[in-house]
Design a protein around this nucleic acid. Structure first.
Lengths: 342, 342
DNA sequence: CTGAAAGCGCTTACAG
DNA sequence: CTGAAAGCGCTTACAG
């Protein structure tokens, strides 16, 4: 679209400088001049060229979104889609560009990041996952590159900006919810514990039990690192214990579906025999029968906030690292019931 | 990173023009000079500035990815995430930028698009959904903006570039698969039929039945426009017919889960009483028990191809609209069985 | 085969 | 309050 600042200047009878200043509502331009310029802009449908202004201001207005390496299965979780949606929503309205970065493994991702940094493309990166050790985060930190973590920081906590739920609290609340219903043998089922949210939710769960004076049993804390292909042994073992848990807290809806199925196979009814409560409140939670009581973590808002923090820090580099906690809320459905003595 | 073309030129003892040409491996530069320049580039870790080269070449190297309006539920489908991954993978390696565009409804999306076009930001758009009538597509077409459709074109078929599966064929093959197993009362379950893939898969299904001389029964073609909150009446009605279908072809794994659950409720076993075959081969297909036989549509490759087409057309505007068909393949699992006379 | 120069479309100190 | 000018870092006809 070839209408430039010069065209507007010519039509309004002012200099390009004045047009530029009017665009940013610079205080030194008189009201009348601004009015004149704005009319010209409207008439021509002028919009400043993105590349040119990026170059002049040395701000690319572009932020990278780093997905987990695609070799992780966790990757295929609509949670990330929601976060991306949140990010892009905010970016769209603030006229920032967001670009998704993927790779088979960390090595590939790092390659792309390095390139973007050197070409001056990205002002910063939003990392959509967090775990204890991560070469990508280490690199960003060491190079002093601006980044925002969706999830909790593990290293360099005070120097990293992150946006997260209070997963410890959420884990605690869900466990308490089950306790309120009279359950005592409550299990915890999660994916890879090196992903911090899995760990945090477990901590909350442990806290709740401990506060109630209920011993925490490691055997009831089960980890399923990857999605079970067939019948999962760990799950099966858990559900066939003589002191079978009467309720299970699951760290993700996807896993909860696996658990529901495990119960079905064994002829256990939900919530009759086993209550289930899970996380993410995805489409799945509504789909299964019984539908799942699940914690909505506001994935989209995690994204929005991450983008907001990112842009805030791009434009004000002197700002100090902030931590944002996005609220969660429990959505009650049909997978939990009052515990009845057998 | 402030190492510019001038720094390289100085170090190599040539002019900036020569450095620039070396970067693009221009044939007119002598081998020795190129060598000299490349060494200087390597030494300084030089990478051409993205904004500057965009401005000079008038190519922003940025493509917009248009997600379905977030008011659609269909939206929360990991399928889109996979496509995005495919797109960004290709873009990352070709040094293109992709930016996700979202909005509550078409109106909001259009707003963002118009803005990007006027600021000269996006060279083109990849649209991740296709249905019969769509204001976004109409706009892009009418304005002569470059776009690539993931899915099939409905209007302006010959002028639009699209990347799709052969959904008619896929639908036909899945129906044939069920027919081979001896099923005759086969139902088709899908989401909103105005989404073209739902429609195409149904056509394939009808074709297969017709070829076998089996009458197509409209009552067995069921549409569930939105995800069932609780027990779904349509599903229920389908499964409690006196001439209950012995197999169901479902247009998406997510819906298949709903169907599986409907069966459970009614005490119908899968695949004993009802065989199920579905589409997308998402994580879900592996998770449920029985796991789902599902058609893998290569979502990620749909994205890669779409990006490839996009970039091809950005760089060669004279190219004519291409259609790319990405192959699919059936992944057999445990949800289908040979039909046994009752 | 190589370089000087103009240009891409904005921004912003500097001068008035 | 406004403008002329230099600059952001590349690209590419044009000239040699």
């Amino acid at each position: 679209m070839p209408v430039t600042i010069k065209d507007v200047a010519a039509l309004a009878g002012v200099s390009p400088s004045t047009v530029s200043r009017t665009c940013k509502d610079h205080p030194s331009i008189s009201r009348q001049t601004k009015e004149k310029v704005r009319q010209a802009m409207a008439k021509l449908g002028y919009e400043p060229n993105f590349q040119a202004s990026s170059l002049a201001t040395q701000n690319s207005r572009t932020i990278g979104i780093i997905l987990p390496p695609s070799e992780w299965e966790a990757y295929q979780n609509a949670f990330y889609l929601e976060v991306i949606r949140g990010i892009s929503q905010y970016c769209n309205q603030r006229q920032y560009i967001n670009t998704v970065i993927t790779g088979q493994n960390e090595e590939e991702i790092l390659q792309v990041i390095k390139n973007m940094v050197r070409t001056g493309l990205a002002e910063g990166f939003i990392v959509l996952y967090s775990r204890e050790q991560d070469p990508v985060l280490d690199y960003l930190y060491e190079e002093g590159i601006l980044y925002v973590l969706v999830g909790k920081a593990y290293r360099n906590v005070n120097q990293t900006i992150y946006v997260d739920n209070d997963n410890v609290l959420a884990g605690k609340e869900t466990a308490e919810y089950l306790l309120e219903l009279g359950h005592e043998r409550i299990a915890y089922l999660s994916g890879d514990h090196s992903l911090l949210f899995n760990n945090d939710r477990r901590m909350g769960y442990m806290l709740a039990l401990t506060e109630r004076g209920i011993g925490f049993l490691p055997e009831l804390c089960v980890e399923v690192p990857s999605v079970p292909e067939k019948q999962n042994e760990v799950l099966h073992a858990l559900l066939t214990r003589t002191d079978r848990p009467t309720a299970v807290l699951v760290s993700d809806d996807i896993l909860a579906v696996a658990l529901e199925k495990g119960c079905m196979e064994l002829g256990l009814s939900i919530p009759g025999d086993v209550s289930i409560i899970s996380f993410n409140n995805s489409l799945l939670a509504r789909l299964t029968v019984p539908s799942l009581t699940s914690v909505d973590v506001n994935s989209c808002q995690l994204g929005t906030q991450a983008a907001a923090q990112m842009i805030e820090h791009v434009e004000n580099p002197e700002l100090v690292a902030t931590k944002i906690i996005v609220p969660h809320h429990l959505v009650e459905r049909d997978s939990c019931a009052v515990y009845k003595r057998p």
